[in-house]
Amino acid sequence: MTLLSIDWFFLIEKILLISGVLVLSLVVAMYSTWGERKVAAWIQDRLGPNRAGPMGLLQPLADGGKLFFKEEIIPTHSNRFLFILGPSIAMMVACMTSAVIPWADTMTIAGRQISLQVADVNIGILFIFGVVSMGVYGIMIGGWASNNKYSLLASVRAASQIISYELPMGLALIALLMLTGTLSLKEIVEQQRHDLWNVVYQPLGFFIFLICAFAECNRTPFDLPEAENELNGGYHLEYSSMKLGFFLFAEYINMFISSALMATMYFGGYAYPYMDKLGLSENMLALTGFLALFIKTLLFIFLFMWVRWTIPRFRYDQLMRLGWRVLIPLALANMLITGALVLFRHH
């Protein structure tokens, strides 16, 4: 029987790792909501949440509890199945990307080499791209199934925004691929470990990717699908209870994952300067590498929040003009220059 010839230790190891990564994403997303409000308060010279627990640290739990116990309303003239499917897709897709991110180097526990990456597929970057392109379905289906004109308008906006910003994102990634010559995120990190970080070679590419990441996460200044002053809250207008919570939560998970991605692809991932000269043991190296990646990710999350509370929202035509007339030509130029330089270096 081939069915029983599965390496059970491998299976258990992967299940543990997947659970760990999921829990990490959820906890970080949870505390991002707290962080967002604290950062907002700091920027606006307020105090922020400070009632639940010390420094308001229990606030996310209180919010989650509140969402769970709120009345669940499904509008009468909506498609019930699709109405529930929308937030489920949003949440599931948000949790999927973390599978290909290398969280740290391999560890050795009880004689077993354990890779701290759920799947080192040789198409890692494309996998992420594929999952990101699925993300829009949650918003579209949810907005349409609500049977509300504001929700529908929001989902139409979301679809065109995400498709428009996927293009420069892909073009920026192509330039990075030309440089690294691999699609595996693990190899990209290993290259940066022994060389300069990719952001040094790809400053323009990184900047384009950063802007597109903001747009793909629906964060300010690109949060048009949930513009409250013109669309009454946008695609989640009819949602209540935990289904609303899923939509909001998915945004924070997306933010965490895209921060981790940017840190991995452009800022060395789990590699940090002089890491091989410290003489640390393999396990310590993996642990400090994970900490380095985590700190870089948190810095990016802070950047997301900083921008949100600093820059006002774009108008819709400005958003489209920025995507098609500025970012795509810039990304194309970046790709061309990178290609020429790579060719020049090889000869």
Binding site: I123, L126, F127, G130, S133, S155, V156, E166
Partner: peptide, 21 residues
């Protein structure tokens, strides 16, 4: 993956877009 990105991720989004409107 290209199948997913191009067909499921881009073309079908546009289909859905038109159908919804």
């Amino acid at each position: 993956v290209v199948h997913i990105i191009v067909y499921a991720g881009a073309i079908m989004v546009l289909f859905l877009y038109v159908m919804m409107l």
